[in-house]
């Protein structure tokens, strides 16, 4: 039987905070939403070196045995750190541990931003639905801020793989086609046709090499009930690349939670793109954006078949692995067909 986590977390933090005494962890609870990491919230209490009592609400993100998305936690941690305190709201990162000794798997610990929602479908219900335009404005403005950011100045070129502007598309397409080759359980004729089209019609070089969040969508940010966004989460697929990649993912049809044309269940396609262009100072060339939107159908299908594979191979039997696969595989095909004018 695995030892309780609370004392082990407390012991780890005690070793990382000089002078800390009476370190205690309680109220530990696993929370949902993290398909690629096990996510827990807990309360930390200790007395600091100056004798002052400290209490903090924190988040533990720990690697599972297998996940929806294979990622590097160091890159995720660095991305959060880079944007903390900027116009891109993110929680404060505290400790990164890449060894298994302390908690059996690598993990990081971060500030918990309390009192906010993340649920994608809640935005279609009161009291949130009346603020959809505000959430949409903030969502695509913040994505524009990410696109505008200088990865060199942020220090992210130290931890993220370099890429040339004309190589972004091929690296990403090669990677996700490889994921499909490795993980698909059933043939995917729609997505294979999309891959052939993408290779035959490559996009222009990226306008700039920017920070790509990698999973920027409704459901991956914290929001209040007044139309404001307070935290951008789930940076586990962050990398350097073409900023249009992120825009294309967020615009993907599969995130139309309102079941109409509003992207992310918030704003029409054209409005979202215009907001992003204003905030980023970049141009979303329609043909290039179309390429990246279709590419993101390939990427999405790569994620969904990987989750089905992990469940099938008994690597991870969390219901989210099969739920996401069954729910998303067909809409993802339909999104690709629509973009190719074949639905």
């Amino acid at each position: 039987m695995t030892a309780p986590l609370e004392p082990r977390i407390a012991a780890y933090i005690a070793s990382r905070v000089p002078g800390a005494r009476d370190v205690a962890v309680d109220a530990l609870a696993r929370i949902s939403g993290g398909a690629s990491r096990e996510t827990y919230r807990f309360r930390l209490q200790y007395t600091d070196a100056a004798g002052v009592p400290v209490e903090r609400r924190l988040i533990l993100r720990r690697d599972p045995p297998a996940s929806l998305i294979e990622t590097q936690r160091r890159v995720e941690f660095a991305a959060y750190q880079a944007f903390h305190g900027s116009s891109v709201p993110v929680p404060e990162m505290l400790w990164l541990e890449e060894q298994d000794d302390a908690l059996d798997h690598p993990f990081f610990i971060a500030q918990e931003l309390t009192g906010f929602e993340t649920g994608a479908y809640n935005l279609q219900q009161p009291p949130y639905a009346q603020h959809q335009a505000s959430y949409g404005l903030r969502k695509w403005t913040i994505l524009g801020e990410i696109a505008k950011a200088d990865p060199v100045a942020l220090g992210l070129t130290e931890v993220m793989d370099p890429i040339a502007p004309d190589a972004c598309w091929k690296r990403e397409l090669d990677y996700w086609e490889g994921v499909l080759d490795e993980d698909e359980i059933t043939p995917q004729p729609v997505i294979r046709a999309a891959i052939r089209w993408l290779r035959a019609n490559p996009p222009p070089p990226a306008q700039k090499i920017g920070v790509v969040h990698g999973d920027y969508r409704t459901g991956n940010f914290l929001y209040d009930d007044k139309g404001e966004i307070h935290g951008i989460l789930d940076w586990e697929m962050a990398h350097l690349g073409d900023p249009l990649e992120d825009l294309g993912w967020g615009l993907n049809r599969i995130w139309c939670m309102a079941r109409d044309d509003r992207r992310g269940g918030l704003l029409p396609h054209a409005e979202a793109v215009a907001i992003w262009e204003r905030a980023s100072g970049l141009t979303a060339d329609p043909a290039a954006l179309h390429w990246w939107e279709l590419f993101n159908c390939v990427k999405g299908q790569g994620i969904w078949v990987s989750s089905a594979r992990a469940w099938t191979d008994n690597e991870n039997r969390d219901p989210i692995m099969i739920f996401s696969a069954w729910l998303m595989l067909n809409p993802q095909d339909r999104a690709a067909l629509e973009l190719m004018g074949r639905l």
Partner: peptide
């Protein structure tokens, strides 16, 4: 073939799907 691919997604549609 394209028509069949489109039809294949129609056959698999679920009411819970967003699209």
């Amino acid at each position: 073939i394209w028509r069949e691919l489109s039809a294949s997604t129609q056959r698999r549609r679920l009411s819970a799907g967003s699209f």
